[in-house]
Amino acid sequence: MAGEQGVKLLGAWFSPFAQRVELALKLKGVKYVAVEEDIFNKSPLLLKSNPVLKKIPVLLHNEKSICESLVIVEYIDETWKLNPILPQDPSDKAVARFWAKYIDEKLIEVIRKILFSKAEEQEEAVKQAKEALEVLEEEVKGKKLFGGDTIGLIDITLGWISLWLGVIEEASNVQIFDSEKFPCLAKWVLNYLEYPFVKETMPPRDQLADFFKNFRWKKRFNVAVRTAEGLAYLHHECLEWVIYCDVKPVNILLDSEFESKISDFGLAKLSPRGKQTLEASRISGTKGYTAPK
């Protein structure tokens, strides 16, 4: 097929975002090479191909790299014309993009919170996820698929709930999706899974469940390691040493990839590089989190 030379997908078997890209490639009949990435030990190729976000998926095509799953899906749709993914009408195309954005912002973001948040925050996130599903339930009512009679952008964007959502519910010990409460979405899932190429991209459920159970702890461990690395940098590698005096959970912020960021330097102290001692008139820090002096 024209334009197919050198198609590679940097992804991971457990990633619903990489699966979106695989679905689009299979729908178009594009041959590609899947390159498995370790998200905890990112390869030089991934870091070179996506130097800004440093995350999967990345599509490599004709020596060009395209990042972000929805951007990649649109690129695939524009490059290979067979089996259109987005509607041709500009108005319909804008609507499809709206719902894809809605799914990512209103559903996926709260699902991430459910995986890693505490009980109270998790309860609120579950509520928000159900509210998002209620909106999608109304949108798919009376339709075989969001894209009509064929799989489209919205179906590809939401397709992960057919497997990943149940696994995440199990790993987090919560219930979000109820087929009786969301009958139209439940029917949509069955229609979506009728396509053989959809099932081909699905990882084994048991394997995925084991991964997510372990993944929660790996992510938490990674937060601790990255925080320690940040403190080590402040204390030993800055041009002027920064002695951080208020390490506690509320001061460790997490980005969308759960990479830790140290915040609140109000109690921090500066020390000339190489100075062996630092004089302080009082103990600094928050009671209960202050290290023994």
Rank of each mutant, 00 (worst) to 15 (best):
R226C: 05
F215G: 05
I156R: 09
Y102M: 08
L163V: 14
F215E: 11
V225F: 09
L190A: 13
E279S: 11
F177W: 05
N41M: 05
K8G: 08
S43V: 01
L10M: 13
E259A: 12
Q88N: 05
F146R: 04
L190E: 11
S117N: 12
K199A: 11
V223C: 08
K293N: 07
G166V: 04
D155R: 04
V135G: 04
S172F: 02
K101L: 12
E63M: 03
L158N: 01
P44Y: 13
D38S: 09
P204Y: 03
W164I: 02
R226A: 11
L253G: 02
E257M: 15
G288A: 00
L190V: 12
T201W: 08
S281K: 15
S271Y: 09
L145R: 07
E131R: 11
L165S: 03
S162R: 01
V140D: 10
L53V: 06
H236G: 08
V52W: 05
F14S: 04
D77E: 10
L70C: 14
Q276I: 08
Q88K: 04
S49H: 01
W99G: 04
A34D: 12
V126R: 01
L46Y: 03
S49C: 06
P204K: 03
G147A: 01
S65H: 15
H61S: 13
F177E: 02
Y32K: 04
E121L: 09
A129T: 06
R216P: 07
L254V: 10
D206T: 11
V242I: 15
P51C: 02
L208N: 10
E237W: 06
L45D: 08
L153G: 03
G152Y: 01
E109Y: 14
P249R: 07
P57I: 01
E139H: 07
S49A: 09
L27Y: 00
V174K: 04
F211W: 14
W80Q: 04
G147H: 00
K106C: 11
N222F: 07
H235A: 02
F265A: 02
I283R: 06
V174W: 06
N222G: 05
D155H: 01
L115R: 15
W164F: 10
G230Y: 04
V198K: 02
K93M: 11
V242G: 08
V7E: 15
V223F: 13
K81D: 05
V7L: 15
P272Q: 13
Q88E: 07
V247G: 00
E200H: 08
L10P: 12
A291R: 07
D246A: 03
K55S: 01
K127I: 01
L9W: 13
H61A: 13
G266I: 00
E134V: 08
E37I: 07
I176L: 01
K293Q: 12
F221V: 08
A24R: 01
E169L: 07
P292Y: 01
Y75M: 00
F17H: 01
S162F: 09
I168Q: 03
E63R: 07
V35G: 03
M1R: 10
R226I: 03
